[in-house]
Design a protein around this nucleic acid. Structure first.
Lengths: 130, 130, 130, 130
DNA sequence: GTGGTCTAGACCACG
DNA sequence: GTGGTCTAGACCACC
């Protein structure tokens, strides 16, 4: 599981985990029927408290993404992938929309803004590929 | 004062206020020496708690944007505009970067993402101009 | 708020709280727009941990019964009552069904069972009215 | 052995098994001296983990219902039946009482509740006989 | 070992 | 003051 946690960026850690698990399912990196790491294991890996992971997993159960298997961990629900694919777009879109809305309302020059967005996008892609 | 508050978008209200005041100064909508609305007046206008506005104004004092006038409210500091212009770019850029980073990490198809960003930008501009 | 908590009867405390809040809304004992006790206050009153109450309240938010008011507590949603009235019947029915199913499967004499149910019902009503 | 397991109804599986074995003894479906299925056999039949069955059997030993036979499984104790008959009534009564108490405390109309109980009882009996 | 429940308490954000 | 978040750790049920 490759999750990137940014501890103090305003988004609760449990929410970051839940979103990224959905992204992984949407992407096929986590497949239906596949087991996710145990609460304790993921907590250790991310260096966060087990209860924080547990809360993320509880949210994911409520959102029909994970299924608890008594005593054996949790697995991705069979029907989770299409739901996650749709939700991924919405989650990403909503966050982008908020950032873009603020950017526009800041009265930055529209052309400057457009350039800024593209530059950031390019820069982040380069960071990612290196 | 034309401020747009989004109560439950994850950004604290006092922070939304402070940021938008900076944007207004950067833009020249609020000029050096100009008085800002009183705490209670702005609170009424935005339908938020006066303490929330007070906290935003306190932050703006600390950030060298506002200056208290003896008993008569606050005004924009003479030297605030260039500082706000610089900070505006940083504030907007940082939020965009966070949203774009998550979008990229969600493994949405890069082309799809690029299209999404542009579509949202266009849609928001249309909303704004209507 | 008159809630009866039975600490170790197999039903988690947070679930007992959530169910009984729904019952109170269904009954009109808690009306739409009315504030519920704060997390800390109810925790003290029931002699349980605040986090236990917080979890119950979180569930009630997810179930569209309560609405958080920033800094001022939580209130019953305007549209909660009909939903709670319907759900109350389901919640009660489901638990009764489980108990009755086990009773029948225990092969107690059906006539004896019927008598038992009525006797218990009567006895509990007397306890309640005294 | 005709046991009905309901995996996620709040009652631990091992407890469901233990209770139903007692019911079977009370009913005479399991007679004194009769052998019960082996742990792994019953586990297969119920599609549960063998350790779960083992735990139920351990409880039943402690409750003086089963007796281990050297290496050959377990049998019903000679004196188990009357004890189970008494306990059955108590077990069933207690669960009914809990469900009925909640139902009364939910402030459902008493007449409505009475009707509900009878309707559920009737419906379950029909299900059972078909 | 697993997840579920609960407690205790710190700290923050908000009003 | 409020609720939200997070940590730390106990205990239980289940496997």
């Amino acid at each position: 599981m490759f999750l990137h946690i940014y501890p103090h960026n305003g988004v609760p850690i449990y929410d970051q985990i839940a979103r990224q698990v959905k992204f992984a399912v949407a992407d096929g990196a986590l497949k239906a029927g596949e087991a996710v790491p145990s609460v304790r294991e993921l907590a250790r890996e991310l260096a966060v408290n087990p209860n924080t992971v547990a809360r993320a997993y509880r949210t994911l159960q409520e959102d029909q993404v994970l299924l608890p298997l008594r005593g054996t961990g949790m697995m991705v629900r069979q029907d989770a992938e299409p739901r996650c694919r749709e939700e991924r777009l919405e989650l990403v879109r909503e966050r982008l929309r908020q950032a873009l809305r603020e950017a526009l309302e800041s009265r930055l020059d529209p052309q400057e803004l457009r350039t800024l967005v593209m530059a950031e996008l390019e820069q982040l892609r380069e960071e990612a590929t290196k």
